[in-house]
Write a protein that binds this DNA or RNA. Structure first.
Lengths: 115, 115
DNA sequence: GACACATATCCGCCTATGCGGATATATAGT
DNA sequence: ACTATATATCCGCATAGGCGGATATGTGTC
């Protein structure tokens, strides 16, 4: 029950919804998100921790970078919620704008040793 | 976007999840919920206001009583979320216990003029 | 080890919101 | 109008959590 509430609480904040919207495209590191969302590093990192703690995402270190992506091993509720959520985030104007910014950003991203 | 976050925020609290679990059975008034959840009236009323404000439920006055039920006219996200949610709430032990208490309570509920 | 870079955490500040008793309001019955 | 009942709102208090700059930690390079 507490876990269920926690799962929803993680979705109750605009920045976190935008982060999840972007992660629908695939894994991203903190600095990618900073660039696209135009928010300070501490803010991004804090929200990522929150999402990870709630069980939505997990991070993997590759060199200096931490890459975050959706977890595939969540419970039933989480899996079904993710399906509903990803479909609906795509419709939100703010998320669509973020997607465009991401596409633009990926074109010019400086080369990265690990990917 | 703010609306989406608000919808989830309403689901981020245990008492509210329990209330929604009970409302899956059909409409209930504040005093029904007080009895079944064994919480003070101000607490129940506050959470119901919160849920109504987020768009999950609506209240209808019948005499002295306010009956609350799920809204049927929510957006796509809300409808799909409700389907997922109701299925999963039923599985939670705390919600199952509440259902039993509700069944017990309904047997002895004193007659009500309006229903 | 010194440095640069990416990330996590700490800090003080502020707002939102939880709680439950007390009070205000609305309605029905007499 | 008075009373009883149901509900909503107010109040003070406590905690959670948002923010972003500052600092600490981890990692690769030289």
């Amino acid at each position: 029950m507490k876990e269920t509430a926690k799962l929803f609480k993680a979705l109750s904040e605009e920045v976190r919804l935008r982060v999840l919207g972007l992660l629908c495209h695939g894994e991203l590191c903190v600095c990618d998100l900073m660039e696209v969302l135009d928010l300070p590093q501490s803010t991004i990192s804090r929200h990522l921790s929150y999402l990870a703690n709630a069980g939505w995402i997990s991070g993997e270190r590759r060199g200096v970078w931490m890459y975050y992506r959706f977890r595939e091993d969540g419970g039933d509720l989480q899996q079904e919620m993710l399906a509903v959520l990803s479909r609906h985030l795509a419709v939100l104007p703010a998320v669509a704008r973020d997607h465009e910014r991401l596409a633009q950003y990926l074109k010019t991203r400086r080369p990265c040793a690990c990917c």
